[in-house]
């Protein structure tokens, strides 16, 4: 851990729709507590939620971790699920693998990864067939 940084971890359970989103809300509260700018918190929370929901819908056992530093916030979401066979396709706007059941619950508009890409300052995806997914999202903290 970097000096001055603070690490937070939350576990994500696949198919647990009742608790889905709790980790993201905790991350959001936590960042507010420290006193980050509301716009930055919003971007991070949106990414956290999208990533968390991807694990809940498609992934295996997962973990979300956040390293908070005065200059940068790094959010990592990893799971041991089936992984993404074609990352390029998953990053396309409108592409979705959500099942009809998920769609009925209001998920799966194909916003996940493109929405993360839009809101994070950088996004790194490691995945492959059967290899789980490991997302690393970075957010720059702009201060005066």
């Amino acid at each position: 851990m970097k000096p001055g940084g603070l690490l937070k971890k939350y576990s994500i359970k696949p198919r647990d729709f009742v608790k889905a989103g709790e980790g993201s809300i905790r991350i959001q509260k936590f960042l507010k507590f420290i006193g980050f700018d509301a716009g930055l918190i919003r971007r991070i929370s949106i990414c956290a939620y999208e990533a968390e929901m991807n694990v809940v819908m498609h992934g295996g056992d997962g973990e979300m971790s956040m390293l908070v530093d005065p200059k940068e916030i790094v959010l990592e979401v990893a799971d041991d699920g089936p992984g993404i066979p074609d990352i390029g396709l998953a990053l396309q706007e409108g592409y979705s693998t959500a099942s009809p059941e998920h769609r009925e619950m209001g998920f799966g508009a194909g916003m996940g990864l493109p929405n993360i890409k839009k809101n994070a300052d950088s996004l790194d995806i490691h995945s492959g067939n059967g290899q789980g997914v490991h997302l690393t999202m970075c957010f720059e903290v702009k201060t005066r």
């Binding site: 903290v141 201060t143 005066r144």
Partner: peptide
């Protein structure tokens, strides 16, 4: 309009220390 409050790095560092 969202008040664009530019927080200082010192404040953030202090916030993190306080939280710890």
């Amino acid at each position: 309009e969202e008040a664009i409050t530019q927080i200082s790095a010192v404040d953030i560092a202090r916030g993190i220390e306080r939280l710890k």
